[in-house]
Design a protein around this nucleic acid. Structure first.
Lengths: 207, 207
DNA sequence: GCTTGAATTGAACGGATGTTCAATTAACCT
DNA sequence: AGGTTAATTGAACATCCGTTCAATTCAAGC
């Protein structure tokens, strides 16, 4: 009927975030009702509005926070090395970063349609920053003669699509370890750009 | 108030199909109401139920028909050639076939969540058939020494994800022609599998 | 121990949703 | 011309939706 024993705003906020991410990934933003979400957390629907002003703001916050984390963590991971090394860093970072956030990754491109135009524009800007970062690596590598000729923007998008394809079939209880998947995908990425070391990188036996 | 002059079931059915595909791709299945869809076609909502028993059946029919067409057209396109040639045929077919059906392609992997479990299983079965067809080409090419070592299933899924990435950024009024995009993507696919002719296939100037 | 604020509730509101159905009109067939 | 069927409608139904709000209980600070 009112405040319940042991209730804590911070813990509730986190529980809502987790449940929302999981359920939206499962059934979709539009299909998820605030009542269903609240039930999952063990709350009444009205309690949700203490943490988010409305449903749309909740979705935006989920995606926006995800993008901020992604950009921040990637900035830390960069090493300023040669383009071919940097591309491997990117590939492994992308998989490793999203591994425990696979639902958020899923949302970040499945639920763009559900954002208002203003919110969409803000997310897309951050997403473009990420894409362009990869494109810059590709362009530098191409100019240095490390990679084949290519349209860097198109190739960058293709590589990200390829990597995100993981979300389609990956299951956490699957037979392939994260390290093995990293190797497999890095192998493919290296080949897409024509990086020479792709030929020597045969780590597939672990699969 | 009742039947309107010039009304024709077949034409209406097609108009509904077209509008539903377009609008679901735009806003999502759950977000699209039957009233909104009917309005787009110039009908009352009740009229839709003459063509589909319910909303879920409509979505299923859209996806199911799309998959049937895809499988049928691909079966016709196959040439029984060597794996490397067959892979090029597949790549170009995939792009060419979906070019005028880009909304349907979008639906066929964005709206899987919106299907009932039974309907999902039926679509997934057809989708798996397509994936396995590609995997078989890869496996044969690998055994023939035409392609690099790889896990054919994983690589097949990655290639399809890479190709479907087109839907993320492709705009029909964009500056790159379909032929040029075909060349770019075939180039990438060839490199992913380590097909030798990838090195000679430099068609990027057209972009 | 009293007060202040944080956390949560049930009930309610207005509107939208998918779907049904009897009624109505146009086209087609003989 | 008349009868049958195809195509469409408006109104209605029950249910669910996001959201608000006054009321209530718990925790923390003085």
């Amino acid at each position: 009927m009112a405040r319940r024993i042991g209730s804590d705003g911070a813990r509730t906020r986190e529980a809502i975030r987790e449940a929302a991410t999981r359920l939206i990934a499962q059934v979709g933003y539009e299909a998820l009702s605030m009542r269903r979400l609240a039930e999952e957390v063990g709350l009444g629907a009205a309690a949700l509005y203490r943490y988010y002003p409305n449903k749309q703001a909740m979705l935006f916050k989920l995606l926006d926070t995800h993008m901020d984390e992604l950009l921040a963590c990637w900035a830390k991971s960069r090493q300023g090395a040669a383009p071919d090394a940097e591309l491997e860093v990117f590939t492994r970072f992308h998989i490793r970063h999203h591994w425990p956030r696979i639902d958020s990754l899923f949302l970040s491109y499945m639920e763009l349609r559900s954002l208002t135009p203003e919110n969409f524009a803000r997310i897309e800007e951050k997403r473009n920053r990420y894409d362009r970062g990869l494109a810059r690596i590709l362009e530098e590598g191409r100019r240095a003669g490390l990679f084949a000729e290519m349209d860097a923007r198109v190739t960058a998008r293709a590589i990200i699509a390829l990597l995100n394809g993981l979300t389609t079939w990956y299951r956490p209880d699957g037979p392939i370890s994260r390290e093995a998947i990293e190797d497999i995908y890095w192998n493919m990425v290296a080949r897409v750009v024509g990086a020479p070391q792709a030929e020597e990188n045969r780590c597939l036996e672990r699969a």
